[in-house]
Simulated assay, not measured.
Amino acid sequence: MSKFMNRAAIAALATACATTAVAEEWNVSLWGSPRAFTAHVEKIAELVDEKTGGEFTLNISYGGLSNNRENLDGISIGAFEMAQFCAGYHRDKNPSITVLELPFLGVSSLEQEVELSMAVYQHPATVADLARWNATLLMPSPLPQYNIAGVGDAPAALTDFEGLSVRATGGIGAAMETVGAVPTSMSASEVRQAMDSGVVKAVAFAPHAHMSFGTIENATWWTENLNPGTVNCPVVVNTDALDGLSDDHREALLGSVDEALDHYIANYNGATMEAWGPALEERGITRVSFSDDEIAAFKEAAAAPAAAAWIEQNSAAGLPAQELYDMVTGMIADGS
């Protein structure tokens, strides 16, 4: 009997150990606070937990694991398994995806932004680019066209941006330079303090970020139709960690991407944009619109030169830049 009990105890212990062995926890590095920009990460964590019966958990941290400009570095050394970052924070580290940040590409919806991003993410050159950081691109964080909120006198014409300090990253910053603005690159979490202290007089953001990071609390004007472009902010995973998952856990993660993105888009197009108009009105923020002729001139001055410079620079660095650019612009022309 004693011998039987010992065997039973050993079997139970072995079962418990086996169960423990398949349990998986990943740390996820985000920043700021839960908002429209992170809705898909929150959703995928929920879906993975449900699909695996709690055996695979994504522990989301808002700033507790890394500075947002260092999330890709953290992924590369395995400091955490999943993270979000924005390409414009370090263009030299992820040049392939910066094609999506070129000004005036003409992207018309979040759904289109997802299609373009996933096509670029799956291109062999992009896969190789991110592999340098032991990173696998999981999904984008699709954002609408950026516009600018600022303090002081509202610009009556594009010439009024001359000398204005603007927080603008990537291609948006390059576009603003063409109208004489002085772009400054800083992370979103630094923007409110910079605006309060006068380091910048205006900030280019998508609507959710203007609300989340408080720029509309002291802004006096907002450009309604400048629409110079957007930024690309992927969610990435550590490649070794992804490869180390069991088949079931990997499927739970990868198989939840589409649903997480659908949730993100529904939330952004719904609750976020519904709150935007009233947020401006409650604060008495002036809406600034530019004429069609001014926007056309802005696009002509910014789009083609920025694209040509991007292609030249990245082709010289060994990237198939023309191919990536043609793929993106071709998909947009086809209405993809």
Rank of each mutant, 00 (worst) to 15 (best):
T286M: 10
A209H: 04
Q193N: 07
R192E: 10
A297Y: 11
L254Q: 06
A219M: 08
D196E: 14
E259W: 02
D292T: 15
V236D: 02
E217P: 08
L245A: 04
V231D: 09
A188F: 14
M176N: 09
R287L: 14
E217A: 11
A252T: 15
A206I: 15
P228R: 10
S189C: 01
V288Q: 01
T220K: 14
K201W: 08
E190V: 03
G229A: 12
T220A: 14
S185A: 12
V236E: 02
M195Y: 01
H249D: 13
A241T: 02
A241K: 05
A297G: 14
G255F: 05
V235Q: 03
P207V: 04
H210Q: 00
D240H: 02
V257G: 01
P183F: 10
E190K: 05
A206K: 05
V191D: 03
G198M: 03
V288F: 02
H208F: 05
S246D: 05
G255E: 04
A188N: 14
V237C: 06
L280T: 05
M211R: 12
M273N: 11
A266M: 13
T184W: 00
H263R: 11
S246P: 03
E177K: 14
A175C: 04
C233N: 09
M211D: 13
G198A: 01
V288P: 04
S289H: 08
A175Q: 08
L242R: 00
F298R: 05
W221R: 08
N238C: 07
V199P: 00
E281L: 02
W276N: 10
C233H: 06
R192K: 10
S197R: 09
A181G: 02
I295V: 12
N267M: 12
N227W: 07
G180S: 05
E281Y: 01
D248I: 11
N218G: 14
V199M: 00
A252P: 13
W221S: 10
E281S: 06
P228Y: 11
